[in-house]
């Protein structure tokens, strides 16, 4: 005999969440409801004397299958709410009628059956299941192995993208970048020479001009950068009093250093 309380708990725990399949909008909610159903079923199995199956149910369904569903949902966009309006004419009616008919039919045929429960104490235990599994059903087990291989191969064929372009070394990457006209040296960090360590302050070049691209593009798009000119002014004020004398666009200090390196005497 089965505990009545257990039955009603299981019934509530399975039927109510499973209705989410029909009425909930967000797939994630549905998946979580189905997880509940699976747990409910696991409880039912334990109550029906199949503890091994109960555990397997939790491990396989809630642990693996439903999590896989959730993963795929995340891949395809986790918060897509479904528009519940029916697009196929009459489908809603047909669906409810057919499914309802199926339910009524099944319940009535089950009700019609006259099955006397045999009162035996044999309940499922892992040892008993294992005994039968590996004697009577050993062939099925082996075929299941092939089935799992097939599933794995299938999943790989349909989802695995191998490397299609050859992997490039750092040297090649660098060469390609230079060929494309990129700056060979590192970009300055934001705030360099600007006497500021905030991310939104552009670095200053040796002339003291702000380098706008040293600030993250994200900030730029959000218009959250500071004005570089402002920090330039600070520089002029404090550090380089004779800077004023140099007109805009005059030979930079860069040129000076190069000359120096070339061996000429600085002024």
């Amino acid at each position: 005999m089965v505990s009545e309380v257990l039955f009603w708990i299981v019934a509530a725990l399975t039927v109510i969440p499973s209705l989410a399949l029909l009425f909930a909008k967000r797939p994630v909610h549905i998946a979580m409801s189905i997880v509940l159903v699976m747990v409910g079923l696991a409880a039912a199995y334990v109550g029906l004397g199949a503890p091994f199956l109960g555990v397997v149910q939790i491990v396989v369904y809630t642990g693996a299958v439903m999590m896989m569903f959730l993963f795929v949902m995340m891949l395809v966009g986790v918060d897509n709410a479904e528009d519940m309006r029916e697009t196929i004419k009459g489908q809603k009616w047909i669906g409810f009628l057919a499914a309802g008919g199926l339910g009524i039919l099944l319940i009535s045929v089950i009700g019609d059956a006259s099955i006397e429960p045999r009162l035996t104490d044999t309940v499922g235990n892992p040892e008993g299941v294992a005994m039968i599994l590996f004697s009577e059903y050993v062939l099925v087990m082996e075929v299941l192995g092939f089935l799992l291989i097939t599933a794995a191969v299938g999943a790989l064929v349909l989802t695995h993208v191998p490397r299609l372009t050859p992997r490039r070394t750092q040297v090649e990457l660098q060469a390609a970048r230079v060929l494309a006209g990129a700056n060979p040296v590192n970009k300055p960090m934001p705030g360099v020479y600007a006497r500021h360590n905030a991310l939104d302050v552009p670095a200053l070049d040796p002339q003291g001009q702000p380098i706008e691209e040293s600030v993250s593009r994200v900030l730029e798009i959000r218009r959250q950068t500071q004005d570089g000119q402002e920090f330039r002014a600070q520089l002029e004020d404090t550090d380089n009093p004779d800077h004023e004398a140099r007109p805009h666009g005059a030979p930079s200090r860069d040129a000076d250093t190069r000359n120096t390196r070339d061996g000429e005497e600085p002024k």
């Binding site: 075929v143 299941l144 097939t150 599933a151 191969v153």
Partner: peptide, 23 residues
């Protein structure tokens, strides 16, 4: 000659077909 084993075999030949159809 067993209905459940038949179900396993049914899936064993159906799964490869499902995949091959998509290719």
């Amino acid at each position: 000659t067993d209905l459940i084993f038949l179900f396993v075999a049914l899936e064993l030949f159906s799964l490869p077909l499902y995949i091959m159809v998509a290719l």
